[in-house]
Nucleic acid binder design. Structure first.
Lengths: 193, 193
DNA sequence: TGACTTCTTGACAGAGTCTGCCAAAACGGA
DNA sequence: TCCGTTTTGGCAGACTCTGTCAAGAAGTCA
């Protein structure tokens, strides 16, 4: 019971809205579902929906329900071991903390289909990735890395290894562990043409 | 006079709208300017604006006025020489073909400020980069590269080297040639931690 | 030049997104 | 139970974007 009750309620409500929304998306298609419909199905007002998520795409990018929020990567970063960093972040995605599982109906990647297929969602996710890679860059700079090296490194890991692996993992049906994809991608990064 | 009159008119009209829009943005701020105002100032109807650009952000991502359109990278790609590929693409950005210059009031990076600063524009640009990196990936695959290697390579070059350099170049005031940033970034890519 | 076809434009209506605002309701601690 | 704080709902309104259709401009051919 680490979180105050109010926050837990908020968390549960957010998860409920997300799950309701994805149910509707699965049934009617992302573009055919309006925020008004989601709100009605979830038993809240549209105004409340926007307070929670800011936009329809916000369903997929709002902390702590994002693919991975910028706030959440920070604790995993070890600049002396970037491959290990990537693997820890991945573990956080595939094995969410217990208190989240308790209120979540589906797995954290339930909405991944829409992240990959819907341009609007994809754009929102890229914005989140952008934010994450910026923080990553800043941390690398603080460690003494040059601006160019930090920028290229952060982006290569973030967009190339992380998001790329997440995408391919999903496209392949999530049969093999995500970690395998990360390992492959990390190896590929060492062997660029 | 390579292009038919209709297309030249269209091109000129698009450039005129873009320039008008950026004038307004510079004066009032991106968020304070509505499409209706842009259209009025450019002497077209809002409907026409949407036909040209699809959205307000489309001003920055619609071919051939995008930072770089997916269609335009293809001719520059030489899979046996990726650094050279990057440099040719950069040259296309900084040295636009004559027929474009003729109808363009400002330099091609006139709107770069908004690309970097406005979240909505940035998201749209990422969508365009995403599209570009996908095509890049496909081409690499056709050349026999493995799926993972192609994905990581395309993303590292596209998001890490290309967009990263473009961003830093602008942030530094575009004093040094963009090519220098590309060269630096390419070197950094060979020396990832 | 005049007619014919094709593409482009403007106007309008309407659905959907998102925000500011304020009063009502719910909550959680004392 | 009571009270201060937080959350919610409802409403008005601005803005974005799309479908549709008739009017206008551009290009073609005789």
């Amino acid at each position: 019971m680490a979180l105050p009750l109010r926050e837990r309620n908020r968390l549960a409500a957010a998860h409920h809205i997300i799950d309701t929304a994805i149910d509707l998306f699965d049934e009617h298609g992302y573009g055919q579902v309006t925020v008004e419909q989601i709100a009605a199905a979830a038993g809240v007002s549209p105004r409340t929906f926007y307070r929670y998520f800011g936009s329809k795409e916000g369903l997929f990018t709002t902390d702590p329900y994002a693919v991975i929020g910028a706030d959440q990567i920070q604790p995993h970063i070890d600049l002396d071991d970037l491959p290990g960093t990537l693997r820890r972040i991945v573990a956080a995605v595939t094995d969410p903390p217990p208190e989240e599982v308790a209120v979540r109906a589906g797995p954290p990647w339930r909405g991944m289909h829409y992240v990959l297929q819907e341009p609007a969602v994809r754009a929102a996710v890229y914005a989140a990735l952008d934010e994450g890679s910026r923080r990553f860059t800043d941390l690398l700079r603080e460690k003494g890395m040059s601006a160019t090296q930090a920028r290229v490194t952060a982006r290569a890991y973030w967009f190339g290894v992380y998001f790329g692996s997440l995408e391919q993992w999903h496209l392949d049906g999530r049969v093999r562990p995500l970690g395998d994809y990360i390992d492959q991608a990390l190896a590929a990064l060492q062997d660029l043409p």
